[in-house]
Computed example of a mutant assay.
Amino acid sequence: MIDVLEDRADDPVQEEIRSAIWALSVDEQIDLATLVWLGRCDSIASDWRDIREAVADTHNDRTAAYLLGTPLLGDDL
């Protein structure tokens, strides 16, 4: 069971998450990243528009890599 905790380049869980994120539209990817930003700071739901605008300004084709590289992603979501 310890193998589950190891980081590997061919991790099927990461591949599944990457695939799910890549299948999202750009707007959906921006919304997902906005949720992460909202979850990791002291923001409130009424800050959604401002945060989403900042995320949209920095959006690129690396959303999956960005999110998977975010420490405590599950907690932030």
Rank of each mutant, 00 (worst) to 15 (best):
I21K: 05
H59I: 11
G69W: 01
I21E: 02
Q29L: 08
D75L: 13
S43T: 07
A20L: 13
L38H: 08
P71F: 01
H59N: 07
L73I: 02
L24T: 00
R8L: 02
D76T: 11
H59L: 09
Q14T: 05
M1S: 13
E15F: 01
D47P: 08
S43A: 15
D11A: 07
W22P: 03
M1C: 03
P71E: 09
L68P: 04
R40N: 08
D57K: 08
E15H: 06
L32N: 04
I17T: 02
E53L: 04
E53K: 12
Y66F: 04
H59F: 04
Q14N: 06
T70P: 04
A65E: 15
S25K: 13
V13G: 01
E53Y: 01
A33K: 09
L72M: 14
W37A: 13
I30H: 13
R8S: 07
D3S: 13
E6C: 00
E16T: 06
Y66D: 07
I21T: 10
M1R: 12
S43D: 01
C41W: 08
A45F: 11
A45V: 14
D57I: 05
L68C: 09
E15R: 13
W48Q: 10
R52K: 15
L5M: 10
R52M: 07
A56D: 15
M1A: 14
C41D: 14
D7H: 01
L73Q: 09
G74E: 03
E16V: 03
Y66K: 05
R18W: 01
H59C: 00
S19R: 15
D61L: 04
E15V: 06
D27Y: 02
A64S: 08
L5I: 12
